[in-house]
Nucleic acid binder design. Structure first.
Lengths: 176, 176
DNA sequence: GCGGACATGTAAGAAGTTACATGATTAG
DNA sequence: CTAATCATGTAACTTCTTACATGTCCGC
């Protein structure tokens, strides 16, 4: 049900169309809460139906610009504060659990790949941060900083952990 | 499609029934790849159909014990090495993105809650590690160590990050 | 006028969740 | 004998993905 709240959250303070929202889902939110076009348009219709958003304006090409209603904002806040975060799937860790199904060489390669990927993601984040226009004071940029810093720390942790894990495997090999 | 591989992975080296697998999904894998009973039984039927697993033995109460076939192991390895990990959803970060929808006090409370939760999860992990029988040398315990260490580092990172984020909010408040 | 971006929508199917339904065996 | 555990399965529903379908406006 979180897609619903992603949509509500994006409409806080700034009206937008489905098309506008999709751009955000394909960029800033791509690594946090991916969504497809058909999902977004469907959810917008359902939210409007439920009175949590309104069509504030209609533009060219059938463009519908939605705004958050009061009950929409209330519902978003309720979700943020009250709702328990649901369990999240992690296919990286799933693979680590099953590392024993690979040969030791393959397992080490996989961890090496993870380390390299984490390093690459850090680099990509760094570039993104530099390219962003921090003068524009939207809500997403303000809290986007917090999210980016989380990402930076996560990727750094992953890189270090993968290197540690490689050493562990090597020690187990040597010890056996 | 990863549930399929979770099931295959759990069958590496040790035959099991759906009931056995559910115990694992409800414990070790609960925070990595949650699955429901109806999903697991359905997937087992499909995997047997596809020849990736076999019914090796039938026991009391209609118990069916499945083993991995060779093509099952091949397919698992292929997935582990070749398949790109799909984007993962993160409702924690989604909420952080929308922190601006809350009052500053509520936002700080939420981050404080995250810090406390991360601390609790570290404690829980520590207890789990102590309670585990490390003499039993199953594959899950060997690589389970790696996964637990990942968890430890993740929760530590989360706690520190949340505290950093609280300080950031305070600074922004003070500065404004 | 025409290509690219803008813009919305539907349909079919896969994956995941919740709830129900049923029965066999074993330990005490 | 009876409660707990073992054990499998189905049905209905929601959510997510992929693909298709359609049309409009704007700049050049």
């Amino acid at each position: 049900m979180s897609l619903r709240y992603a949509v509500l959250g994006l409409l806080v303070g700034q009206p937008a169309s489905g098309y506008d929202l999709m751009k955000v889902f394909n960029t800033s939110l791509a690594n946090v809460w991916p969504a497809t076009q058909s999902q977004v348009y469907g959810e917008l219709a359902r939210l409007a139906d439920a009175g949590l958003i309104d069509v504030a304006a209609e533009g060219p090409r059938g463009r519908k610009e939605y705004t958050l209603t009061e009950s929409g904002l209330t519902e978003l806040r309720r979700w943020m504060v009250e709702e328990q975060p649901e369990a999240q799937r992690n296919s990286l860790l799933l693979r680590v659990f099953f590392l024993g199904a690979l040969t030791p060489d393959q397992a080490t390669d996989y961890l090496g790949f993870l380390a390299a990927r984490a390093a690459g993601q850090q680099e990509r984040l760094r570039q993104l941060r530099e390219s962003l226009d921090w003068t524009e004071e939207g809500m997403l940029t303000a809290n986007g900083r917090l999210v980016m810093e989380y990402g930076r720390r996560l990727f750094a942790m992953q890189e270090e952990w993968a290197q540690w894990a490689i050493a562990q495997l090597a020690a187990a090999e040597g010890g056996a």
